[in-house]
Amino acid sequence: MRLDYIEPFIEATNCILEDVFKMPARKGKLTLHSEPVTSKGLVVVIGLTGDVEGRVIFDMEPETAVKMACIMNQSKFDSVQPVVVDSIAELINMVMGKALTILNDKGFSFKLTPPMVFTGNAVINTTIRLETLVVPFTTDYGELLINVAVRPVV
């Protein structure tokens, strides 16, 4: 998998987490996986179209999502409720927007599909069969996994 496609997602995640939560996120070791993926409990799936096809999955435990949404909204939530889902979707939108900005400025042309949020420990099986790169980020609120699978359109 081309690293120049992947690095912007890592850079964008780091940047947005730091911007929104005012704390650095610690990036763990990158690993290669094959689909299907088992969710930690709350996943956001965004598809990519344009010069590449593929998808990016952001995966976290529901508790992590709730803690992040509490900070973002400066409110107290006890469970994954619509406002939590909406806040996490917007957080991921910001990450993807930043990544796309970096990629577009490098001359790649990408478009995003709207984020889809799923809850539960389901197995995620997207239609595009690709090898995926998983990047873990450790935050003060829990772990966030980014699962990137992209390939150039020929």
Binding site: I16, V20, M94, M96, G97, K98, T101, N104
Partner: peptide, 25 residues
């Protein structure tokens, strides 16, 4: 207001008559 802040998009927004562009977050 957008999380997409690449030059081409910002220029397009301004050429369509946007008064300003705010990048998210």
């Amino acid at each position: 207001v957008s999380s997409l802040g690449y030059e081409e998009l910002v220029k397009k927004a301004l050429s369509l008559g946007a008064k300003h562009f705010i990048a998210k977050p």
